[in-house]
Structures are given as structure tokens and as C-alpha cells.
Write a protein that binds this DNA or RNA. Structure first.
Lengths: 344, 344
DNA sequence: CGATTTACCGTAAGCGGTTACATAGACCCT
DNA sequence: AGGGTCTATGTAACCGCTTACGGTAAATCG
């Protein structure tokens, strides 16, 4: 790897000039500029990032806080891959890399864990990171608040945080739920239940809220026994459905706050000898791959998966460039009608 | 962020001593060492990584080469999330971070693309990366060869590369296919077809090889018309199955080289009025989530998903620490018998 | 008891850039 | 012609850390 000094010597200029050629090209004479550029190209010169970061106190890296561990298998994000594709490629367009921060995995205190957001914040300073993207890996919501307060630019995904340089991106969960339940209402259902995500989870609560709103809109009073808590996973969908079906007046339709739970509900219905959608209509949320492959194919509320990552990238870049904070971004959702709701 | 100099002043020692406390603790007097450590702790001192990397010419980051772009949706890895979980958390245990390298997304020449592995190699030097992990995102196999030759430590996933500091990790694809087809043979099938991955894809070819071996072992001569090419995606599985069923002597069992294609086959069979497994037995490969949810549940060959990442992490760390190259690692696969093969 | 280790620590030179400041010539003006 | 601008470049300090080298005092040795 060629260094700036080598270029300088070959061109008969000082290192300062070489540096200027790349950082303030307009301040250097055209002729020497071209000479430097030509030599630089020949030697395939790239400024050393460590040196540059040390000197300028900023790098071209964004930190990703995603607290997972293969030894304690936990929360699986419904569409992490698409999100990452969007995030990474939008960041790339700005010349930024994505640094997946190490969590303190073992005795050697290497980093941080969400129990200690300070560790991450320090890490962003140590590496001169431009900012942080926070992916909720279960129940990190409270911890995220600490990040938001720290003053480092950060954008959280699906967790509403607020801070001097912090904001978030999320889907229009309420709107999505609203349109899902409206759809069910439109199909003639009035005994509509919902299976929620874990208590405290914000998207889940917004979905419940949309559910309620749609019912009221239709003039049906939400019943408490029709709102049963799940945890986004399949098994909880099955369990919840069993409970719902055991009610004196069981629902004729179920809106599940995740596709996984909707699949669980499907299994429960099948086990109970009910046909979907004839005996029980089903709508999910997320539009993960499974949704289209299950039988009957799941009607569901689709989220803009790569758009999530792209929005996060745009927002964090805006916060790095500008000085303040950005407005939260709410991505539109879209109802995808398939077979499980009985519309076809 | 406290700097080494501050610590030094507060302790009345030189910065050199502070540095030694962290890098060669045994060379500094116990009393002063503890004093330094105490003050460092109070100020929550962490050495600046840029400065450290600049000075030592090595960072605690591993580069991830994963060539994707949300504007050209391409190859979706069957189990990227689990792989990343394994990779990230195993790397964390060594105190390393994972840097997802930017690809040159736009006009501003920021990085590299697989057409230009040199760009990535330069990037690893610029950032003083310890090494590279290469994830195949379609047909990068040839490009990976260039990485392998470059001399930077790298481990490729599912692509056999060889170089002075390069190796790879893959599943026992042949063995997995072997056990899958053996299983089919054991169930009485002899007209067994296979749907392969894209030509040139190494795991796919190993699976075909395992398929052939199992047939020969059972005394049945593989027929060319029973080997039809897919691309790992669902649609290709459907198309391939249609072709197979149109044969004069259609197969009674199909081994698909991916679960996605197996699902596609399932749809084709259903469309043709065939019952699975009674009329057509089906085995897939990967054991992705869909496999267990589809009806009938898919018998498939499971790969050790987080194990993949963990193995990659271990291998790259070994290559960084040691000087030479490591042996390729082949992860065991396991046949998961469910309903689509007719064993139950 | 002088010479030689040994243990500990400070000095200073990097690492490869960036940038404030100084300098030097070219140009313009009165 | 002398002074003021402007342009283009060099000088050198600095970013924060590592480490080769040297020095000092205590410990060891003959």
C-alpha cells in the first residue's frame, strides 16, 4: 500500500499537497493536482483509514447494535436479511461501512452488552463511529433509551426513542392493523379476536390499537376476552387460539400480530377441526416468506423490509451530516390478501 | 473520553507506562500498575482504536464480503441470520467486530465490488482488518479465488477456495445427499430424481454426487433424465418437477437440493393432482423454517446454521493468530425425517 | 566494594494522515 | 515603486497510542 509520503516524493510535492488534492481539490493548482492524481492512481493509493480517523476524529463506519448470542438463541428477527440488505446497500451509497459491534461474549471484557449501553457508546467514540443503528433483539427497549440520551447519533428500529440526536423508524403498525381488521369487518365478521405480541412491545401495542380502532369504527365494541397475549412466536399463536376457541362465544376471525403466530393459529384451528377460512378467518402481520407457502396462504400486512434498512441508513446519514435530530419515519404497510381470510 | 495522556498525568507517570500497563503488564511495577488501572477505571478509559490500529497496524475487526444490493434483489441466503448470529457471537468472544464492507454503490468510488476484489483487499489493508469472511451471494465463486490468492487471511463459506492464507467452511453436502437418498431407497424407491442447484455451484454439485453415490450403492444406475437443473429457488423446483412428471417413466421420489425447490416441487405435485408422499416422495435440503410448516412437513437435510458462522469465526481467528493456513472445515449434516418422504 | 545485572520507567520517534499558519511569488492598484 | 491581495505550496504540530532505546537506582556478584 502506497502512502501519501510516497506519492508526495514521486510528485515532488509535500504530503500536505497530496492530502489537499483529496480533501480540498479546489485549493491546489490544476496541473499539480492532476499529476498527483495520476501517480496516486498508478500506485493505487488509498488513504489509510486509521490515520484519517485518528486525525479527523471521524470514520466512515456506522455501528450496528444487535445483541445476539448463539449460545442463548433468542429473538429471531422476522426479516433481518432484507433489512440488512437495505441498510448495507444504502449505507454503501454514502461510502459508509456497517460495523457489527462485538458484545462482551466472555470473560475478556471486550465490549458491552445492552445491560451496559455505556460500553457501546464508548465503543462508538473509540472507533469514531458516525452513529449507531439499533436493532431490537427482544426486549431492549429500555436500554435503547440510554443510547438515545447519550448524544451519539442513533436510529432505533421499531422502538420509539427520543433524544438529542436520536430517532427511529418503524412501520405504520396501527394503520396496518386497521386495514387488516377493516378487511375482516368488510367480509362480514364481527367476532374478531387478536393475538398480540409481548406486552410492552411497541409495534404490538400499535397493532392492538389499530385493531380496536377498526372495531369501534364498525360499531362493534372490543371485548377484552378477544385480546390475548402472545410473544410473536408460533407456539404462542397456537396456545392463544386454543384459548380463544374455548370461549363461550369463540371468534370467527383472528388477527395475529405476526405471521408466525398466524401460522400457529392455523395449526390450532386445524387441530380443532376447523377449516380456514370457512370456520375461522385469519390475518397475519409481516408478510414473511412462510406466509405465501402455508396452506391456505396467509392474508397478511406486509412491511417494506428493505425499505426499513434504507430508511434507517438515510436517517442516520442525515443526522451525521446535519447537526440536530431527524423526525421519526413511519413506513407504509400494505394488506396482502391471500386465502386465509376468505376473501377469495 | 479520557486519553492515555490524562491517565498518565493523574498518576504522575509517562504515557508509555500507561500503555505498558495494558499491553505488557508484567513489565510494570505492581504498585504503579494498580494505580494506573484504578484511575483508568475511574475515568472509564478505553484506548482509542484508530490510534492503536495506526500504530500496531492491526485492528480488531474482521471484514465481511457480502455482495448485495437492494436495487438488484438477488440471491437470498437460506439462513443468513443464524449464520450471522454464530459468526458475530463467536467473533465477539475473541473481542473482534464484524465490518460489513461497503460495495461501490454509486458514482462516488467508495469501495469495491466483486468484479474488483482488489478493492476489497485494499480496504482490508486500509482498515488494518484481521481477515475476511466471504459469503457467496450468487455466483461469486470465481471472484473468491482472487481473494484467496491475495494473501489476506480469508475464509469462504460454501465455496472451496485455496490460497496461502485462505480456506473455507462448508457442510457435508455429499454426505447429506447420500443419507437423504439412502433414506428414499430404504423406503423402497428406485425411480428417484433430483433437482439440482445452479450449474457450477459447489454445494449443489456435491449433492448431486451424493445422490449418484447412493443410487449406485443401491444397485440402481442413475439416469440422466432424472437429474434436472434448478437454481435453488422455488419456481425452478416447480418447473423441474413438471418436467419430471411429464417423463414416460416419472420418478416416484424427488430429492431437491434446497428446501425452496422442494416446496416448489410440492406445489407442482399438488397441481398435478399427486399426493405427497403417497404418489411422490420428497426430500429437501437446508432445513429452513418453511420446511416444518409446509403441509406435508418436509423431510430434509439439516445444516448446522449457527455452527457455520462459529466455524468461520474460529477458522479466521486461527489464521490470524497462526501464520499459515487452516484446513477446510466440513460440518456434519443431519437428515430430519418429517412427512414428505412417507416414512411415517 | 566496584562491576554487572535487573527492574522499572521516561524519552522520543514513529504510524499516516489533516490542517493552521507561514511563505513566496504573481498580479493589481495608486 | 511600494503595498495589498490572491493563489499555491511548504512547514510543522497534532491526533492517541506503541515501542525501541537509554538511563537510573536497586539488587546481585566476584
Amino acid at each position: 500500500m502506497a502512502t501519501g509520503r510516497e506519492i508526495a516524493q514521486l510528485c515532488g510535492v509535500s504530503v500536505a499537497t497530496v492530502s489537499r488534492v483529496f480533501n480540498q481539490p479546489e485549493t491546489v493548482n490544476e496541473e499539480t493536482r492532476e499529476r498527483v492524481l495520476r501517480v496516486a492512481k498508478e500506485l493505487d493509493y488509498r488513504p489509510n483509514e486509521s490515520a484519517r480517523a485518528l486525525s479527523t476524529k471521524q470514520s466512515t463506519m456506522i455501528g450496528l447494535v444487535w445483541d445476539t448470542d448463539h449460545r442463548r438463541p433468542g429473538w429471531r428477527h422476522p426479516y433481518l436479511q432484507d433489512l440488512l440488505i437495505g441498510l448495507k446497500s444504502a449505507l454503501s451509497a454514502h461510502g459508509y461501512h456497517l460495523l457489527m459491534l462485538a458484545t462482551s461474549g466472555d470473560a475478556r471484557e471486550v465490549g458491552a452488552s445492552l445491560a451496559d449501553p455505556v460500553g457501546y457508546v464508548n465503543m462508538t467514540r473509540r472507533h469514531h463511529l458516525g452513529g449507531l443503528v439499533l436493532i431490537d433483539s427482544g426486549s431492549d427497549a429500555e436500554a435503547f433509551e440510554a443510547f438515545a440520551q447519550s448524544g451519539v447519533p442513533c436510529v432505533a428500529l421499531d422502538v420509539a426513542v427520543d433524544g438529542p440526536r436520536a430517532t427511529y423508524v418503524t412501520s405504520d403498525n396501527e394503520g396496518g392493523a386497521l386495514s387488516a381488521v377493516r378487511h375482516l369487518v368488510g367480509l362480514g365478521h364481527s367476532r374478531i379476536a387478536t393475538i398480540t405480541g409481548p406486552p410492552g412491545n411497541q409495534p404490538s401495542e400499535a397493532r392492538v390499537s389499530g385493531y380496536r380502532k377498526a372495531l369501534r369504527e364498525a360499531g362493534v365494541e372490543p371485548r377484552d376476552e378477544y385480546v390475548v397475549a402472545g410473544d410473536f412466536y408460533r407456539a404462542s399463536g397456537t396456545a392463544a387460539t386454543h384459548r380463544l376457541l374455548a370461549l363461550d362465544e369463540p371468534p370467527t376471525a383472528v388477527f395475529a400480530a405476526s405471521d408466525e403466530m398466524a401460522v400457529g393459529a392455523l395449526l390450532a384451528a386445524r387441530a380443532a377441526g376447523l377449516r380456514v377460512p370457512q370456520d375461522l378467518a385469519l390475518v397475519g402481520f409481516d408478510d414473511i416468506e412462510i406466509a405465501s407457502v402455508v396452506d391456505p396462504a396467509l392474508t397478511t400486512v406486509a412491511q417494506d423490509k428493505p425499505g426499513f434498512g434504507v430508511a434507517a441508513a438515510k436517517t442516520i446519514m442525515a443526522m451525521i451530516t446535519g447537526a440536530g435530530r431527524e423526525e421519526p419515519v413511519v413506513l407504509p404497510t400494505q394488506l396482502v390478501v391471500r386465502d386465509s381470510c376468505g376473501a377469495r
